[in-house]
Deep mutational scan, measured.
Amino acid sequence: VSEWTEYKTADGKTYYYNNRTWESTWEKPQ
């Protein structure tokens, strides 16, 4: 699942961004 990158927002929430599909999600990808 290497295309997903984990980021943190300014208020400390974690989200995930897909470099291949430009998708972002709050849930941890499978």
Rank of each mutant, 00 (worst) to 15 (best):
residue 1 V to F: 15
residue 2 S to N: 08
residue 2 S to M: 11
residue 2 S to H: 09
residue 2 S to A: 10
residue 3 E to P: 04
residue 3 E to N: 06
residue 3 E to F: 09
residue 4 W to S: 03
residue 4 W to H: 01
residue 4 W to D: 04
residue 5 T to P: 00
residue 5 T to K: 10
residue 5 T to W: 09
residue 5 T to N: 06
residue 6 E to R: 01
residue 6 E to P: 03
residue 6 E to A: 11
residue 7 Y to G: 07
residue 7 Y to N: 10
residue 8 K to R: 09
residue 8 K to D: 00
residue 8 K to G: 01
residue 9 T to W: 04
residue 9 T to K: 03
residue 9 T to L: 08
residue 9 T to N: 11
residue 10 A to N: 03
residue 10 A to F: 06
residue 10 A to P: 10
residue 10 A to D: 13
residue 10 A to S: 09
residue 10 A to H: 13
residue 11 D to S: 04
residue 11 D to M: 02
residue 11 D to E: 14
residue 11 D to P: 00
residue 11 D to R: 01
residue 11 D to I: 01
residue 11 D to Y: 06
residue 11 D to N: 08
residue 12 G to L: 01
residue 12 G to H: 03
residue 12 G to Q: 02
residue 13 K to S: 07
residue 13 K to P: 00
residue 13 K to A: 09
residue 13 K to W: 06
residue 13 K to F: 10
residue 13 K to Q: 07
residue 13 K to E: 08
residue 13 K to C: 10
residue 13 K to I: 06
residue 13 K to T: 09
residue 13 K to V: 12
residue 14 T to Q: 07
residue 14 T to M: 01
residue 14 T to P: 00
residue 14 T to L: 07
residue 14 T to H: 10
residue 14 T to E: 07
residue 14 T to F: 07
residue 14 T to G: 03
residue 15 Y to F: 14
residue 15 Y to E: 08
residue 16 Y to H: 02
residue 16 Y to D: 03
residue 17 Y to H: 12
residue 17 Y to S: 05
residue 17 Y to R: 05
residue 17 Y to F: 14
residue 17 Y to G: 03
residue 17 Y to Q: 11
residue 18 N to V: 03
residue 18 N to M: 00
residue 18 N to F: 02
residue 19 N to F: 06
residue 19 N to Q: 10
residue 19 N to P: 05
residue 20 R to K: 13
residue 20 R to A: 14
residue 20 R to E: 13
residue 20 R to W: 15
residue 21 T to Q: 03
residue 21 T to M: 03
residue 21 T to F: 06
residue 21 T to R: 02
residue 22 W to Y: 14
residue 22 W to M: 15
residue 22 W to N: 15
residue 23 E to L: 04
residue 23 E to D: 10
residue 23 E to N: 07
residue 23 E to M: 01
residue 24 S to H: 12
residue 24 S to T: 15
residue 24 S to P: 07
residue 24 S to L: 15
residue 24 S to D: 01
residue 24 S to R: 10
residue 24 S to F: 14
residue 24 S to I: 15
residue 24 S to V: 15
residue 24 S to E: 11
residue 24 S to W: 15
residue 25 T to Y: 13
residue 25 T to H: 05
residue 25 T to M: 14
residue 25 T to G: 04
residue 25 T to Q: 12
residue 25 T to P: 09
residue 25 T to V: 14
residue 26 W to I: 06
residue 26 W to P: 08
residue 26 W to E: 13
residue 26 W to S: 09
residue 27 E to S: 09
residue 28 K to N: 11
residue 29 P to A: 00
residue 29 P to E: 08
residue 29 P to K: 02
residue 29 P to N: 05
residue 29 P to F: 10
residue 29 P to M: 08
residue 30 Q to V: 14
residue 30 Q to T: 14
residue 30 Q to G: 13
